Simulated scan of single mutants.
Amino acid sequence: MLIRNFRRAMAIGVLSLSLFSLTGCLYPDDQTPGSNVNARQSVLTVQDAVDSYQEQTGLLPIQNAKESTPLYEKYKVDFGKLKRMDFLAQIPSAAFENGGAYQFLIIDEETKPLVKLLDLTVFQAVSDVQKKINEYRSGHGNRNPAGDERYPGFSTIDFGKLGAEEPDISSMYSHQSLSLLVNVKGEVLVDYGIDIATAVKKSGTEPRPNVDLRRILVEESYFVPVRSPAYRWANGEPQAVPSN
């Protein structure tokens, strides 16, 4: 047990340094994405538990997910498995399962699994608007309450048509207010274009044209983007891409 605890402590230290080096390259210390200390420490603790679980069992402690589940919502951490095998003493207070505001996810499950956070406050805000959009479309011949076109196939939402106020969606990356979009299928999505453009500018490197630019945000923080379209680099800026 002492050896396991020592190994976990060392792993957390190494992971802390690696994550600090990632986030520090684009953001000042006081603006590091995911600056909530409790949530940040929880990611490190759960990452260590996931690594140890995989090392011992050859599997990942994840809940079953449908194939159609969006990329950055798909693999939820199964805290029950981690607790039953004594890899985690308790569920983090930041986790939804313990009354917190975040869903703990695993990405890159087939290569180098990483623990990330899904902001459920933003997720719920998007879901609430989605319900209003669905009601509007059902009474208006499946037409969207669309405002201006933001990208091909994506428009802003005219909240006046919905008879509702636009929610304040705060970016977990930059703390700026983000807009909501609606695509031709009536799906409500968060527009992370401004965050991606900022990250690309600060990196000083132009992205390859066929790369999903959301990956930049994931690599530079503890968070995954919530209910968002994929983005590609086109004409010197991020461009939202319709899903298939």
Rank of each mutant, 00 (worst) to 15 (best):
F87S: 06
V126C: 03
R232Q: 13
L162Y: 10
G13Y: 02
D119G: 05
D86I: 01
I216C: 01
S228C: 13
N210Y: 03
T121A: 10
P92I: 05
Y151H: 14
E73Y: 08
T198K: 09
V184S: 15
Q41E: 14
A234Q: 15
F104C: 10
N38Y: 12
L88S: 06
Q90A: 13
F223E: 01
A89H: 06
P92G: 06
F104Q: 09
T156L: 15
L105M: 12
F6Q: 10
I216G: 00
V43N: 08
M85T: 14
A230Q: 10
L217K: 02
Y231A: 04
Y136M: 03
N144A: 13
H140R: 09
I107V: 15
S52R: 12
D128H: 07
K83Y: 01
P207N: 05
L59W: 02
L114G: 01
G80L: 03
E187F: 05
S35Y: 08
N5L: 11
V182I: 15
S93W: 01
H140I: 06
H175R: 14
L217T: 04
E97G: 06
S127D: 12
N38C: 14
H140K: 11
E237Y: 02
A11I: 01
W233R: 05
V77I: 12
L217V: 04
S155T: 12
S127K: 13
T198S: 10
F154H: 03
G58R: 08
W233Y: 07
D48C: 14
T45W: 02
M1D: 06
Q90P: 00
K66I: 00
T45H: 08
T198P: 00
R150I: 12
N64W: 05
Y151E: 02
N244C: 02
E110M: 12
I62V: 15
P61Q: 11
Q176G: 00
L180N: 11
A199Q: 01
E206R: 06
L26V: 05
K66D: 12
V188C: 09
S35E: 10
P229Y: 01
S138D: 10
T45C: 08
R214K: 10
I62C: 07
S243N: 10
G80T: 05
D212S: 09
E55K: 12
K201A: 14
R143W: 03
I216K: 00
N98K: 13
S127G: 04
E135H: 12
E219C: 00
P28I: 03
A197E: 03
L88V: 06
